[in-house]
Amino acid sequence: MDILKDFQAPFFAMSRLPSFPWTFLGKDLESNKSSELISDILKQTCLHSLCRKFPPSVRYRKLFLCQLIKREAAGCDPLDELYDALAEVVGAEDTSECYKSYLLPGGDSVSLRENVAMISDGTTGLVTWEAALYLTEWALEHQQAFSGRTVLELGSGVGLTGITICRSCSPKRYVFSDCHPRVLQTLQDNVQLNSVTQRAPPHVTVQELDWSTATEEQIALIGADTVIAADVVYDPEVAESLVNLLKTILSSSNPDIYICSTVRNLETYSGFKTQLEEAGISHRVMTGAVSHVFPYSRGSAIEMIQLYR
C-alpha cells in the first residue's frame, strides 16, 4: 500500500517523474516477473476515478505511462490495460490547463485547475508554489490558528491553502483574495469545484483586493482574526505595496499574520524584511518541521514568519 501511495500522490500532483520510486518498481519486476504491481499502480493513477474527473495534463499522463511501459517491457509479459490507457491518452487533445489533485490525510482531496506554464498571462498566480504547500501542511498541524476565526488570505492564487483550511480547520469565515482578473476567475472556479461554498460554516467569499489601493474601511469590513499569504514576496515593488497593506491591517485590528515565502532571491527577501522594520512591524521566524502531506521538493529555502506590532 505504501508504494502505491508513493506513486498515486505525486501522480495527481504532477510531480517531476524522476522523483517517483522507479527503482523499487524495477526490483519488484525483476524478482516477481509479474505485472501485478504495475496493474495496481495503473488502477491508482490513470484508471482511478479521480483521474477520470480531474485529469493531469495529457502530456504528463503520456510520459508517465511510457515510463511504466518501459519498466514492464524489461520485466514481464505485456499488460493490455496499460497499452489501452496509452492509446486513450495519445488520442486526447492537450490544452494549456490541467488539474492537479492534492490528497489530504483523511482520505479527502483538493483538485485544482491550474495552468501548465509557470508564468501565464503575466502572472505567477495560476500554479501552486512550494511555500503554499508548506503553509498548507503547517495549517493542518495548527488548526487552532484558524478554528472559529475569520481568515483573510492575501494572494490566494489557485486556492490550495484556503480550500484545505476550509475543509479541515473549521474557520468561521474565509476570504480568498487576489487582484489579477484571470487568477480571480480560476480561484472562483476552484472554490466552486471543491464545493467549499456549499459547506456552512465557513462563510466563503472571493474578493478582489489590490494591495496598492485597499482602504482602511475595506480592511476593517473584513475584520480578519488571522491573515495568511504564501509566495507573495517575489518583487521589490510588490513587496512595498504588501508592507503598506500589512501596516493598514495591523492598524485596523491586531490579527495573527503569517507570511510563508520561498526565498529565491535573498536580496529581495531581505529588502522585504527591512521594509517591515521601517514600517514598525516586527517578525519572528516560525519555520519548523511539518508532517509531509504533499509531494514537493523539500530542498527549496522556505521561511515562514509571524508579524506583530
Rank of each mutant, 00 (worst) to 15 (best):
D6C: 14
P10I: 05
R16M: 06
P18L: 06
S19E: 09
W22K: 14
D28H: 14
S31F: 02
N32S: 15
Q44I: 02
C46M: 01
L47I: 03
L50N: 06
P56Y: 14
S57V: 04
Y60W: 06
L63G: 02
L65V: 05
C66A: 13
I69R: 14
R71G: 02
G75N: 12
E81T: 14
Y83S: 08
A85H: 14
L86S: 09
L86E: 07
L86D: 05
V89E: 04
C98A: 15
Y99L: 00
S101D: 09
L103Y: 08
P105I: 09
G106Y: 05
S111P: 08
L112Q: 07
E114I: 01
M118D: 05
S120M: 07
G122H: 10
E130W: 00
L135T: 06
L135I: 06
H142C: 09
Q143W: 00
A145L: 14
F146N: 13
F146W: 07
G157K: 10
G159R: 02
T161Q: 11
T161S: 13
G162D: 01
I163W: 04
R167M: 08
F176L: 05
V191D: 01
Q192T: 03
N194R: 05
T205Y: 05
E208D: 02
L209E: 02
D210P: 03
A220G: 04
A220V: 02
A229G: 12
A230W: 02
E237F: 09
A239Q: 08
L242Y: 10
N244G: 04
L250R: 13
L250V: 01
S251I: 00
S252K: 09
N254T: 11
Y269R: 02
S270V: 11
M286T: 12
S297Q: 04
R298I: 04
